[in-house]
């Protein structure tokens, strides 16, 4: 197990290097001058002190942009590793500082929504599978079908209108405290609850039809033990990859709800930056996304190894 984990963790580094190469290439090939990307285009910006052409050339030299691309990459990577991501156009503050202010809010939002996802999708999937073909199952499936068609941005606005304006039961002033985050987190989770619950349902129905369930029952194990410790234990395996993708993608999903509910998180920040062509922020966002995705994948892989011995032992016959 330890060996598997170490090997899996080591694989993350080449992945990160490859991703950094791609991001570097994207930035280099993106429309616009790299100096623009670092310092804003000549003559742009209100709060930006416009840099003269000589200064630009000097920066060009300092940045090593006159060097061949591999060396440029090395210089760029060195700065990235030292978390030197430049300053934003808008505020001229270091990107990392601004990010650090916003990341906790988005992280809170992401984990909150992940929790909401788990406590709704898993029971729904289990209830649906156990009552296959009965009213409860049809009900769950119908609701799931409806909600999977619901655009989260629209749902968010509707809830905001109904709960915040019509009934005035929630605080819609926007903020980063827990009370501000529950509804946004729920809206964020709701988009994927149907997917997860139906996948769990299908997986659980298939497991409940397996012979080992009959055998466990024949040994007199109680319904609860058979369902949760045998069937669900196996049925959750296929949905873990999707859960990982969701956590990895939370950075994207949060953009919409942060925008709708005016939450000062990473999503709203990057959205404003894209619309204001604030490239250093976009670059930071991509790097952050890559690290989060890689981490989420690592967590998924390690959980698979913990929960599924066939993966841990590489499926090879030992006996």
């Amino acid at each position: 197990m330890l060996k598997y984990a170490l090997r899996r963790i080591l694989v993350v580094f080449p992945t990160l290097v490859a991703a950094s190469l791609i991001i570097f290439a994207l930035i280099r090939f993106a429309p616009g001058d790299p100096v623009d990307i670092m310092y804003g285009p000549a003559g742009m910006g209100h709060s930006t002190a416009t840099i003269s052409q000589e200064a630009r050339d000097k920066v060009r030299g300092q940045l090593g942009l006159l060097e061949p691309p591999p060396i440029q990459y090395a210089i760029w990577l060195g700065r990235v590793v030292r978390l030197d991501l430049g300053t934003t156009f808008k505020t001229r503050r270091p990107v990392v500082d601004e990010l650090a202010e916003r990341l906790p809010t988005t992280a809170k939002l992401a984990f909150l929504s992940f929790g909401i996802l788990l406590v709704t999708a898993i029971p729904l999937g289990v209830v649906s599978a156990v009552n296959q073909g009965k009213a409860a199952d049809h009900g769950v499936r119908f609701v799931a079908l409806v909600f999977s068609a619901m655009p989260s941005f629209w749902l968010g606005l509707l809830l905001l209108y109904l709960l915040g304006v019509q009934w005035d039961v929630i605080d819609i002033s926007g903020g980063s405290e827990l009370k501000h985050l529950i509804l946004p987190a729920a809206v964020m989770a709701l988009g994927i609850v149907p997917t997860i619950s139906r996948l769990l349902r299908a997986s659980l129905i298939s497991e409940l039809g397996q012979l080992y369930i009959v055998f466990a029952r024949a040994q007199g194990l109680s319904d609860g033990v058979v369902l949760w410790r045998h069937a669900v234990r196996v049925a959750v395996l296929p949905i873990m990859a999707l859960l990982g993708l969701y956590l990895g993608g939370a950075l994207g999903g949060s953009v919409i709800v942060e925008s709708i509910f005016s939450i000062p998180g990473v999503g709203k920040w990057v959205l404003d930056s894209i619309l204001g062509r604030d490239f250093p922020v976009v670059q930071a966002y991509m790097l952050l996304a890559v690290v989060i995705i890689a981490t989420a994948n690592l967590v998924v892989d390690l959980s698979y190894a913990v929960l599924d011995p066939r993966i841990r032992f590489g499926g090879r016959q030992v006996a």
């Binding site: 994207l26 993106a30 993608g249 950075l251 994207g252 990057v270 894209i274 976009v282 966002y285």
Partner: peptide, 21 residues
């Protein structure tokens, strides 16, 4: 595999950030 590891919304936002809206 690489493309599938990228959550579509995150990637779309990055692309819009790089190449404009």
């Amino acid at each position: 595999d690489v493309l599938l590891a990228l959550p579509p919304f995150v990637a779309a936002i990055a692309i819009a950030g790089l190449f404009g809206t």
